[in-house]
Design a protein around this nucleic acid. Structure first.
Lengths: 208, 208, 208, 208
DNA sequence: AATTAATCGAGACGGTACGTCTGGTCTTAGA
DNA sequence: TCTAAGACCAGACGTACCGTCTCGATTAATT
């Protein structure tokens, strides 16, 4: 999503003849989707509703996005992604804290939270979309995996570390709170969480 | 959910007059819901379909459950709950390993995984259901929180531990893998995960 | 309906033991039916609604009336019937005018009109009720047929007169206007209508 | 009904874009409605059933007809209408006999009788439909009113004749017998009925 | 006084049909 | 060739009543 012109990029060169692709229709549909999402949450977004609000025909929307999730993903995924840092100091604790703080900050934007939750929901219901969603998630995971790998290279972490599990220990609790809302996601807790992660539950001095 | 007769309990006493509640209808509807869920996933469950398959009238189903999510939740929540242990040895590592292993074993039953994923999805789309779902999740969290609290009492964990976060470090990665399926949930990895949790990512000897 | 104790007569003798029929329940149900009818028209009358409004159980209503039409018929049919005269002067024109005027006066009571129209509608939809309705209609026709027969006996009408058709020429236009409402039913027009009937459309002096 | 393209006319011009109205769907729905009507009577007609039998989607039926009465009216109203003559000899008796005979012949087709009775019933229960029904009835009345008006112009009937009442004296008894079924509607009786109408009940020689 | 029988209310049951809604496909007119 | 409009089939939604059916409680007349 962040890299290169997507298949639905309205500015891509036309192949042969025919009416030129309407950049307005594309933009209008995305805009309407975002508006409805912020107004009424993910469940309120329907292709029908986006078509009505944007003035873009239903069939045109179906031509460019295979489901409302794809549409919302294009509208919001990038938005969420572009603000995430790729920290690279020479200190794991610092890199992690930077990353986790930025991650937790997403929760400060209710519309983005609604979007993320909606996308996760859609991934559960539609296997085809799940595939696209998983790819996006993986791209996010790769960034964090890089942080851990570099720490291993520097000798800050044991060579045998299960990086996949380490990444899950960061994203897992984040998503879990986002989805269940049993506890708030609070950026100020990020440093504490990072320390707990590095030194374990048994460690007596997480605030040292 | 585990405690006391629910509002839909067919055995609750009648208030005054009226035909007695049919335990069969209750049971049949739940059973049909579970069957359809296991056959075709959560999205395949419809009130219409449950009525048709169970022979219970649609109106009867609506009388007792306000949505298919409530219905599936009653059918599956209980099923999942009753298989989860409440470990209570005097060793945290042992209790945790027991709990996490049992938790990860849920992933060995594809139908249950489908159910859990569907319930989580529904919670994202329907705020009313989210409330019920959160209560169920909390009841599961409470069990694990008890394990941690007892460990603190025994001095195995620092008194200042954020128990909520500790619980999230167990359930978060589990749900995350369940929902995204980027990596398998493997019960044999449970001991490793527990050791990582207790001693931190920096610890060099998680397999000690 | 006017003659003899009906099957639903609350005063009929009980066979052996048992709780005595509740006159209140009977009265309350009829009363509620009339109220709903006057509020919202015949289509608004439902057994469910009558039960709710009257506090009489649905099963009790079904015990005494086989359909809402029977119920409305008992509540309204008698009311309509009892006001109709059985004129018997020695002058056909006078008898007819008396009868027709009384008949047309029914239209002055909107609730009775609604009831009659509803009963006629029900008779079209439910063959069983149609039978009962036809009997009631016939009892009304018999009264008028008597008027004509006596006029024939007195020599005021030809012996070969088709009395059935004569009766239809009175009730037919009345019902027709009641049901279609293309023209009002006006008691003051009764004398004119009677004269037209007796002397024919060709007659030049109906107002003589 | 006879004049101009109706709102449900499948041949009316489209405004701008959009898929063209399916004449098949229109025709199939009407056909299924007629079939069900002839099979089981008016009460057996349901939108659900028409949809199932015709293969036309329920939503499509609702797009074009607001109720089953509108649908049946379109299917049957026209059928009944087109067979009715507009007689115009120079003799009232002849015109009337022609008209009444044709009218009474409708009773020879049980399916049409069922349709007419059902439409009349619906008009009693649904005020919106009643309006449409009244318009159709009025168009039928106008034909007969024309017969009377021409007779007045020719001097065959008195100038002061209440034409509305005269029309009622023809249609009233017809509908009354159709709806109550206390006596058959017999086309061979048409001449007698016409003579009675023209010369009055008192006339001794209706068969002259 | 106990028994018996019919009533009453309440309300659950399986059903049918309602009219609405969304989804995804298809077909046209016009740019 | 593409867009916008909008009709089409499909099928689930949640609601309203239907007519039937248990229930426990009540109410006489009969033993």
């Amino acid at each position: 999503m962040p890299q290169g012109p997507s298949a639905t990029d309205p500015d891509r060169p036309r192949r042969v003849g025919g009416r030129v692709r309407s950049a307005d229709a594309h933009k209008d549909a995305l805009h309407a989707a975002v508006q409805i999402l912020e107004d009424g949450g993910y469940a309120a977004v329907t292709i029908e509703g986006v078509a009505a609000r944007s003035g873009v025909a239903k069939s045109t929307i179906y031509r460019w996005w295979s489901s409302k999730a794809e549409l919302v993903m294009e509208a919001y995924g990038q938005l969420v992604t572009e603000r995430m840092p790729t920290p690279n100091s020479n200190l794991l604790a610092e890199d992690l804290t930077t990353f986790v703080t930025a991650l937790y900050r997403v929760a400060e934007h209710p519309a983005r939270v609604r979007a993320l939750r909606g996308l996760m929901a859609e991934a559960q219901l539609d296997p085809v979309f799940a595939e696209a969603f998983r790819r996006w998630v993986q791209s996010r995971r790769d960034v964090l995996a890089g942080v851990f790998t570099r720490a291993i290279d520097r000798g800050e972490l044991p060579a045998g570390l299960d990086v996949g599990h380490a990444v899950d220990l960061v994203f897992g609790p984040f998503w879990y709170r986002l989805l269940v809302e049993h506890l708030p996601v609070d950026p100020t807790e990020a440093p504490t969480h990072v320390r707990r992660l590095l030194h374990g539950l048994s460690d007596a001095t997480p605030r040292a």
